[in-house]
């Protein structure tokens, strides 16, 4: 068939083009929201940012390292309380907060990871559950630092630099939160690209083989876990910047479970998928639920159950599935039988 090469390259170009559709739609939606006069909408969207960054962190550990985790709320909590304490002590520079949050998150995740990365699967999940419980319990118990179960409120707004005004305007906060979220996600994607991605794929696909080839798998996993801790710490700093209050419930088991499930809805191995999953979950829980007060769990449950049946492989597999849909006959003259890349191999068990 002489036309096959052209049609195939045409198809590749099309799928390359399609790759840019979700980010373009996201940016367009953000521009619309930023331009709109609705301050409440802007505040609602910017308050999704910390959870989204936490989801990216969980997707790094769950999808790339292959360790299903509930424990990323610990570095998230430490990042948040560090930021809150800094702000209450009069240090309001946002870059300092982000750096301190990332550092504190990385340290906590590094210490926890040293014990955790030796385990896999269910045992890892349960140990990380213990971590989640511990972080919420400590947040409730350590009165002097965390304000106990009452939490910390009245945290001063951050400023980008010592000379600039504080970030209080909803539009400015949204722009700031969106920028930090995007930068963190893109940085995580770039860091997990190419050989590193393949190395992790190999390690979780056949760990014994990777070990036999001389790869220190646990060290890789520890590095990924620690890096994800830095991401979660940044998410914690964002939590303070967008909400300006915190309670132990923000860093407890429920947050940990819902963020993990948001990542599963997103597709586990895809970081943009995790962002989409987090936004979907928060939209249902905080926006759609406004029309049925008190029934957020019901709506969230319906979303989870529906996602299992409607979205196997998560949101990240959706474009590939749409491409696989049987097309109308007038669009395709002859099926060329070329294999279309499967959605990224899923290796969790």
């Amino acid at each position: 068939m002489s036309t096959a090469p052209t049609s195939r390259s045409h198809r590749t170009m099309l799928s390359r083009g399609r790759q840019w559709v979700p980010p373009a739609v996201t940016v367009a939606a953000l521009i619309v929201v930023v331009a709109s006069p609705d301050a409440y909408l802007q505040a609602s969207i910017s308050r999704m940012a910390p959870f989204t960054v936490l989801a990216v962190s969980v997707a790094v550990v769950t999808g790339h390292a292959g360790l299903p985790t509930l424990g990323q709320v610990a570095p998230y909590a430490v990042g948040a309380y560090t930021t809150a304490r800094l702000a209450l002590a009069g240090i309001t520079a946002a870059p300092v907060h982000l750096a301190a949050g990332a550092l504190a998150g990385a340290v906590v995740a590094g210490v926890l990871g040293a014990a955790l990365v030796r385990y896999r699967g269910t045992v890892f999940l349960m140990l990380s559950l213990a971590v989640a419980e511990l972080s919420a319990t400590s947040a409730a118990g350590w009165q002097a630092v965390t304000g106990g179960t009452d939490g910390l409120a009245g945290i001063p707004a951050p400023s980008l630099a010592p000379v600039t005004p504080a970030l209080v305007d909803d539009r400015a906060v949204l722009l700031y939160a969106a920028t930090v979220t995007t930068a963190t996600t893109v940085a995580a994607i770039l860091l997990l690209h190419g050989p590193r991605r393949l190395l992790l794929l190999g390690a979780r696909g056949n760990e014994d083989r990777a070990r036999a080839s001389g790869h220190p798998v646990n060290r890789y996993l520890w590095l990924v876990h620690t890096g994800a801790g830095a991401v979660a710490g940044i998410g914690g700093a964002l939590l303070i910047h967008t909400h300006r209050w915190i309670t132990p419930a923000d860093v407890g088991f429920t947050t940990a479970a819902i963020v993990l499930l948001a990542v599963v809805i997103g597709g586990a191995t895809s970081l943009p998928g995790a962002v989409a999953g987090a936004v979907a979950v928060l939209t249902v829980r905080d926006v759609v639920a406004l029309s049925a007060p008190g029934h957020a769990p019901l709506l969230l449950g319906v979303l989870f159950v529906a996602a299992v049946y409607v979205l196997p492989g998560g949101l990240a597999a959706l474009p590939a599935r749409i491409r696989h849909l049987p097309r109308p006959r007038w669009l395709t003259r002859a099926p060329d039988g070329s294999s279309v890349a499967e959605p990224v191999a899923r290796s969790m068990s």
Partner: peptide, 17 residues
């Protein structure tokens, strides 16, 4: 297992509500 977790946790949320 994570898909099962999604399904059964969703069922738990619905049932609890």
């Amino acid at each position: 297992h994570l898909d099962q977790a999604l399904l059964t946790f969703g069922a738990a949320l619905i049932g609890g509500d």
